[in-house]
Design a protein around this nucleic acid. Structure first.
Length: 289
DNA sequence: AATGAGGGCAACCGCGGAACT
DNA sequence: CAGTTCCGCGGTTGCCCTCAT
């Protein structure tokens, strides 16, 4: 038996808002602010539930809302943030001034999803449609997300066909997950936490370098462990960057000195390696899950 | 002109978690 | 500490508009 909504219980109005209702709500909030949403409809003279008022205000009436179509930059940002955060629409919308989570969600479902599929990219995993469901799923099962207690080497998976062979030379990061956890103060990866949550924790706890409003982790240069964990991460980063449109690739330039993982030497072999910082894009982590 | 399909968007539903009692 | 209320979020639904037939 489906639970009836608060509007049903109280026999309140539902459905589309009339201009009169909009005006009442706008006037009330302009004068008094929304305060407690549950009391808004009564105070504003509306036969709606507080939830409905809140939704109407947030998604439609708020004065700081940006109307109109999404720009290319906004679209790129949404795709990038979705690859990082998944369906966390409120968090994605928070990076887009004047846009609501509902708006972003609708835009994603009605437009971006389709465009990604047309380009052969799985909108859920942000990976090539053919590969997304087969080998990579097996390679990146949950069991692989737990750092190994002994050092083993997992060969990098063959990358997808490249339109531009020079992309093969993209640097790949090597990450010492212990160092990451210590630096950021996030829980041990040997717990049940997934990389998604670790990435989220890292973004939250680290003194992130904010580039274009995005968290870029800053790690110590002692990130030089060759484990399958780092190797798999390295590959994942390469995949995710390759399949992203490229709008954010530039952000990896400059100080973003990355290194080949999986058994290779740390490139920070100079005298001051401890001073060197490695920047890597958190969104690569989220694609593991 | 009528109508059916498809898409876009606004709004609702139901759940989880925080705050309060 | 348990129960209740409220808020916010993500998923889903259904209305309305456009376009093709």
């Amino acid at each position: 038996m489906a639970k009836q909504s608060c509007c049903h219980k109280k026999k309140l109005r539902r459905g589309l808002w009339s201009p009169e209702e909009d005006e009442k709500l706008m006037n009330h909030i302009a004068k008094y602010g929304h305060g407690c949403w549950s009391s808004v409809p009564k105070l504003a003279g509306l036969e709606r539930c507080g939830k409905s008022c809140r939704l109407r205000w947030i998604n439609y009436l708020r004065p700081d809302l940006k109307k109109g179509t999404f720009s290319q930059e906004e679209e790129d940002l949404i795709i990038h943030l979705h690859s990082l955060l998944g369906n966390k629409w409120s968090q994605i919308a928070a990076q887009l001034p004047g846009r609501t989570d509902n708006e972003v969600k609708n835009f994603w479902n009605s437009y971006i999803k389709k465009r990604l599929r047309e380009r052969g990219i799985d909108p859920t995993t942000h990976q090539p449609l053919a590969a997304a469901s087969s080998s990579r799923a097996a390679v990146f099962g949950d069991a692989d997300l737990i750092p190994p207690t002994t050092t083993t080497t997992t060969p990098l998976q063959a990358p997808p066909p490249l339109a531009d062979p020079t992309m093969l030379d993209w640097p790949v990061v090597s990450v010492d997950m212990d160092a990451l956890q210590q630096h950021c103060g996030i829980p041990s990866a040997s717990s049940s936490s997934t990389l998604t949550s670790m990435a989220a924790d890292a973004a939250e706890h680290c003194n992130a370098n904010v580039v274009g409003g995005l968290p870029w982790l800053e790690l110590g240069a002692n990130a030089g462990v060759d484990s399958s964990y780092a190797g798999a991460l390295a590959e994942e980063l390469r995949w995710s960057e390759y399949y992203f449109d490229g709008a954010f690739q530039a952000q990896q330039g400059g100080g973003a000195l990355l290194q080949q993982a999986a058994g290779q030497q740390c490139v920070y072999s100079g005298n001051n390696k401890d001073d060197v910082a490695v920047h890597f894009d958190v969104h690569g982590l989220s694609n593991w899950c």
